[in-house]
Design a protein around this nucleic acid. Structure first.
Lengths: 191, 191
DNA sequence: CGGTTTTTTGAATGGCCGTTCAAGATTTCA
DNA sequence: TGAAATCTTGAACGGCCATTCAAAAAACCG
């Protein structure tokens, strides 16, 4: 277990460094050396742990997806009605530990680069399908069938759009405000 | 004038090739040689016309921004009421000649890369401010002041989100459907 | 037609980056 | 403690890419 622990600690450190370095320099141009410097390690050791640059990126995205999934589960745990669960799906995306400039930024970078990397696009597809089915499951209880798709699209696109803007922000974000705004949008769509 | 014409023709050809090549390979990894092959030219000639890779990217984004601006002006020309003009702002983003997979894709790439290129981020900022002010101008006539920002954010984020999804689409897009859906969203937000 | 300007390109240049590897440092554990 | 396993890294390798440049090709025009 001590063997595992060291590996886990390094993984975590390197992934955090990756998030910061990609945010600072951009997915397309960030170098292994830059990420390594951010982590206080060497480029060679990153390859030791992740095999390649693409492996590191995949692991980083996996890390973020796990965070998002956990945030959503937590929200579901206390939600009681369909509307509350709908709030919970939105809130997960704007959770305090997720809705920060570097994370929105790197998320958008992954988004833009997913189509060109089979490993990233796989993760991206899985996540999107999951969010989509959560939305539909709750909306079904609140709207007639023929309005489902319009409402889902409106809400999901809104969420994506907010992240897109957040990624470009020059100031720190306010997750609480974002959640309140999201609730207002939900109420707009489902009267 | 013949001098000017040849230069304009080449510019247009090279920009079209850039859109296709970036869509195929991704902004971060596309090479001058690939763009040149797409255009049936040499990498050296691209530098002759645009000075550098960044110059080419800036010109390409400028080209797309021009298209968007023109689509919006055209819509405004026939719109008579604030609500019609609001439709027109949305419709411009989903115009037949703009709402295609390669163009949404390249747009997202620019979006993701703008923060790391002063020339791109300048264009990006200008465009965003323009769209924002158009939205606000029309919404002012339709909503009380305290609801302006929520509505604008909902609509603008929706537009961004749709493009984001469209960029990932594997099938051709249907601009007409997109416009219809956008109108429904407008009606949802402004009853 | 010639001379001049504009356009095109193949080849050369210089630099940078991901990955590998062998050797050394550190940790583990019997 | 000492051998084995794990971790770290500097240096080297091989490849790729944007850009430059000189020279050829094409277009222009008096």
């Amino acid at each position: 277990m001590s063997r595992k622990r060291i590996r886990d600690i390094r993984n975590e450190e390197l992934i955090e460094a990756t998030i910061i370095a990609v945010h600072k320099r951009g997915y397309g141009v960030v170098t292994m050396a830059e990420i390594a410097r951010e982590a206080g390690a060497s480029a060679a050791s990153i390859n030791y742990y992740f095999g390649s640059k693409e492996g590191l990126m995949e692991a980083t995205m996996l890390h973020l997806l796990g965070k998002l999934r956990r945030a959503m589960s937590d929200g579901y745990a206390t939600a009681r009605t369909p509307r509350e669960r709908l709030y919970a799906v939105m809130d997960a995306n704007f959770a305090d530990e997720l809705f920060t400039v570097p994370q929105c930024s790197i998320w958008m970078q992954f988004w833009a680069n997913a189509p060109y990397s089979p490993r990233l696009s796989r993760l991206h597809r899985i996540n999107r399908a999951r969010v989509r089915s959560h939305f539909l499951a709750e909306l079904r209880a609140l709207l007639p069938a023929e309005q489902l798709e319009t409402a889902r699209q409106a809400l999901q696109c809104y969420m994506d759009g907010v992240w897109l803007q957040a990624a470009q922000s020059e100031e720190a974000l306010n997750p609480q405000d974002a959640r309140a705004a999201a609730h207002r949008v939900v109420d707009l769509v489902i009267p």
